[in-house]
Simulated assay, not measured.
Amino acid sequence: MIKKTIFSLAFLASSAFAHSAVMSCFDNGDGTITCEGGFSDGSSSSGVAFIVEQNEKAVIETKMDDNGEVTFKKPSEDFVVILDAGEGHEVYIKSKEITQ
């Protein structure tokens, strides 16, 4: 019985951390991009770091709003958006993958 309880507690502890960051972005058609983030377990990305990079340099650094969203002016050249929730929980999306 003790072994079963220890196994159950270990399983619960590992499943509590078993989630992935997710993000989708779309072109609003008005010169802005909106990105929505979250986690695979349904938890919010509110307050998570959000970065837009061009040529590997940050041009926008902010945080996801209370709804887990960010809207920003679309850069004129290629860029990458990054949801950075910590090591192992980053999402990268290239501008060419963002459509209306």
Score class of each variant (00 low, 15 high):
Phe72Gln: 09
Glu56Leu: 11
Cys25Arg: 06
Ile98Tyr: 06
Thr5Ile: 15
Asp65Tyr: 07
Asn55Gly: 05
Asn55Ser: 14
Thr34Phe: 01
Pro75Met: 05
Ser44Val: 00
Leu83Glu: 04
Val59Gln: 12
Ser44Glu: 01
Glu87Arg: 14
Ile82Tyr: 02
Met64Cys: 08
Pro75Glu: 06
Cys35Val: 01
Ala16Lys: 04
Thr32Tyr: 03
Ile2Leu: 12
Gly86Trp: 05
Ser40Asn: 02
Thr99Glu: 05
Ala85Thr: 00
Lys4Trp: 10
Ala10Thr: 13
Asp84Ala: 00
Asn67Cys: 01
Cys35Ser: 08
Val91Gln: 01
Thr34Met: 00
Thr62Gln: 08
Asp84Asn: 12
Ser14Asn: 06
Lys3Asp: 13
Met23Ala: 07
Ser40Trp: 01
Val22Lys: 06
Thr71Glu: 09
Glu61Arg: 13
Thr32Gln: 11
Glu69Ile: 12
Ile51Tyr: 13
Ser14Met: 11
Ser44Met: 02
Thr71Met: 08
Ile6Leu: 15
Leu83Gln: 12
Asp41Met: 05
Val59Arg: 10
Tyr92Arg: 15
Ser95Leu: 03
Val52Gln: 05
Asp65Ser: 09
Ile98Val: 05
Ser45Val: 05
Ala49Tyr: 04
Val59Tyr: 11
Gly68Ser: 09
Ile6Met: 12
Phe7Glu: 12
Ile93Gly: 00
Ala85Gln: 04
Val80Glu: 09
Ser14Glu: 06
Glu77Ser: 14
Val91Tyr: 03
Leu83Asp: 02
Ser43Glu: 13
Leu12Val: 07
Ser8Gln: 15
Gly86Tyr: 04
Leu9Gln: 15
Pro75Asp: 04
Ser14Ala: 13
Gly86Asn: 03
Asp66Cys: 04
Glu77Gln: 14
Glu36Asp: 10
Thr99Tyr: 02
Phe79Gln: 06
Phe26Gln: 12
Ser43Asp: 13
Lys74Gly: 00
Val22Ser: 06
Ala85Val: 01
Lys63Glu: 10
Ile98Gly: 05
